[in-house]
Design a protein around this nucleic acid. Structure first.
Lengths: 242, 242
DNA sequence: CCTTAGATCTCGCGT
DNA sequence: ACGCGAGGTCTAAGG
């Protein structure tokens, strides 16, 4: 885990460190006072302030302030970074194509500059996703409704793919929309689009729509009622019955 | 912009640095080999690997790998960080309440640990948002449709707030939904919910729905047609006519 | 606190 | 490439 770091360096030395880091595909962190201009999908300007800048070898660039979870500015993976010294200012530039986006960071002073080689082959194992909720229902369809018969997942309609498509005990088609957390009106609209698409395909035949989530907001409940849709309360993880 | 940094420190010294940094409300960066466990809205486990950890004074915690824009693990602002030394392992813990979430980072080795005091009072100025699109239309309603009369923004309906509510030249009500970029079926569903809510309030009276965006996907175009809704192409920023 | 919808959303998966 | 929907989404604004 080699780390090369400079404290209160001359901007010239920072430029060399960046060039070396970019060359070697290393991660770089910079702490310093900088102004930032962005132009691409939108455009922004951030006056000078002290921030932490991170350049990843995959082309990602992050600018973090001392608060908030999201970077104040950034470039997505695949961008190309470069650095140049202009008088007494160090300019870090990141360019992305398709769509074209430019980020320019102008440093007045740099307090710390580091090159990091990070070795990380592990993969994140996450539980509690919508996929887990789907597996729960497919493993035991009766928890949705007695006699439910799951016939397909991601079934295509003209309005998009249905999470689970099946039939009830009477053979009536059902579109099931899954959400891992409490839902609002948007999920109802989504389910409604799928149900209407199925009904357009089979005129006259009734289709049921069931929204599956831990809970729904009041407005979503009203919308479900006005559209004739149903709700079943389920979480991705089985309730702890210990 | 005071920066205190340790290279290849003993874990004991890292613990002291963290304690000091937490105490003084400073930002902290750690580079090292660690495993991570999360439990809260979901749960996850990440086996050992080399990562960059950032603790912000507002309670934000970020764990970044050497690729991707998003942190592999994190805690939102408002979380409480703590550190303890357990044998030959350094454990950084972050807890959040409402909802309860825990993140535990177990370091085997630390290559770099830094305390940063970042002074940043500037505010980001961003252009090209949906709000800019709204201002464009309100400043010159005719660019939406000749004779359009904007009567309200964020007008409440039983299905949620309409971006712009108004009337056409004939006095027919119009719900306008704005999007800053190319849109898909979700935006059509959103507009449809608003139009249906208005129609439920005024039975028999027809209501027009207009989706405003730079462009729409084909599926969204079909949905617009099947719902009897309309589309007008506009961008947040005026086209460059130089 | 909860709800609602925007975001330079990001990300993965599919066509 | 583009389309589509999930996400521990995050974040701001409003009730």
């Amino acid at each position: 885990m080699p780390v090369s770091s400079l404290t209160d360096p001359a901007l010239e030395d920072v430029r060399d460190l960046l060039d070396t880091g970019f060359e070697h595909g290393e991660m770089i962190t910079l702490v310093g006072r900088c102004a930032i201009d962005y132009d691409g999908r939108a455009s922004s300007h951030l006056p000078p302030g002290e921030r932490l800048v991170i350049c990843k070898p995959d082309g990602t660039l992050l600018v973090h302030r001392d608060e908030q979870r999201k970077p104040v500015n950034w470039q997505p993976p695949g961008s190309t970074h470069s650095v140049c010294l202009d008088d007494d200012r160090l300019i870090v530039e990141s360019v992305r194509s398709s769509p074209h986006e430019e980020l320019e960071i102008t440093f007045k002073t740099v307090a710390q500059a580091s090159r990091l080689e990070l070795d990380d082959m592990s993969e994140l194992a996450l539980e509690g996703s919508e996929e887990d909720l789907r597996q729960r229902i497919l493993a035991d369809p009766d928890i949705l409704e007695t006699g439910f018969n799951a016939m397909a997942t991601e079934r295509e309609t003209s309005a998009g793919p249905i999470d689970i498509y099946g039939q009830d005990a009477d053979g009536t088609p059902i579109a099931v929309e899954l959400k891992r957390r409490r839902v609002g009106p948007d999920a109802v609209g989504q389910l409604n689009r799928y149900v209407e698409a199925l009904e357009r395909n089979r005129p006259g035949k009734s289709v049921r729509g069931i929204l599956v989530a831990p809970s729904v907001t009041e407005r979503a409940t009203e919308l479900l009622a006005s559209e004739g849709l149903e709700f079943v309360s389920l979480t991705p993880e089985q309730a702890d019955t210990s």
